[in-house]
Design a protein around this nucleic acid. Structure first.
Length: 254
DNA sequence: ATGGCTGGTAGAACCAGA
């Protein structure tokens, strides 16, 4: 089973840049999307269906044109869960889950705090999310949480660790949280296979950052420990350029 | 370099993103 994740920074903008053609060439069974910036009524679902993604699930923010996550799949899930059921976490469309034959795949968009007055909101969301996952794992031990965590874990995950140590996304408190999250029973699947620097998933649109690879690794395929023996590969697809993020892809044995 | 670039909604001397 191939699972991709992509913060598309607006699915309608990504579609205009050839998202469907890329999706068909990457050919994941399931793809988790973040920052779709649209609701279902604003989309022509036939383009996804014609590309083979018959099953599409959209969880949008209440605020039009903002945030939102989705899951597109070639396989029909046994169940889809929209949000967490906790209103303070769900009103911005940040979490959707689909269960496939004993494997649960979640698309997650953790809040940004690039506007620093959102830092408390982000930290609260992170704390609530950890608690939610601690409970969810009891019912769904085979759990893959893909998405934009908006945090770089270690110095290797960001182009300028010294200069950015006080910037949200690389704050000590954020780095500690993601370390604790992994410690609670997950594998950072990319790092499971790759210990090399200069591997990023987000670049500022400004200052030619992407061409200079001045990036941040914000997107993760977190795989729960019980799935470790089934984890085959996990890569960053930095050639796909429909967004300020690039996609990630992981594969587990069926 | 408190700028810089982009998507989306509104119709902005805006808002949000990291």
């Amino acid at each position: 089973m191939k699972i991709a994740s992509y913060n598309v920074n607006g699915i309608r903008a990504a579609l205009k840049k050839g998202f469907i053609e890329w999706l068909q060439s990457a050919n994941p069974d399931v793809i988790c999307l973040q920052e779709i910036k649209a609701n279902k009524e604003q989309l022509d679902l036939s383009v996804f269906i014609e590309a083979g993604y018959t099953y599409t699930y959209w969880f949008s923010a209440q605020k039009k044109g903002y945030s939102g996550v989705a899951i597109l799949s070639k396989i029909e899930p046994d169940h889809v869960e929209y949000g967490t059921g906790i209103e303070t976490m769900d009103f911005e469309g940040r979490n959707i889950r689909a269960d496939f034959n004993g494997v649960s795949v979640m698309s997650l968009y953790l809040p940004s705090a690039s506007n620093t007055d959102r830092l408390d909101f982000k930290l609260n969301y992170m704390a609530e999310f950890q608690e939610y996952i601690n409970e969810l794992k009891k019912e769904h031990p085979n759990l893959i949480i893909c998405g934009d965590y908006n945090i770089c874990h270690e110095a290797i995950d960001i182009h300028n660790p010294k200069g950015l140590k006080n910037v949200s996304g690389f704050l000590p408190v954020e780095r500690e949280w993601i370390g604790d999250f992994i410690g609670s029973g997950f594998i950072d699947s990319f790092r499971h296979f790759n210990d090399q620097p200069d591997n990023y998933t987000w670049w500022s649109y400004r200052a030619n950052a992407r061409n200079n690879n001045k990036g941040w690794r914000l997107d993760y395929g977190m795989v729960s420990k019980p799935l470790e023996s089934r984890l085959k590969r996990s890569v960053i697809l930095a050639d796909a350029k429909h967004s300020d993020h690039c996609p990630i892809l992981l594969e587990i044995t069926d």
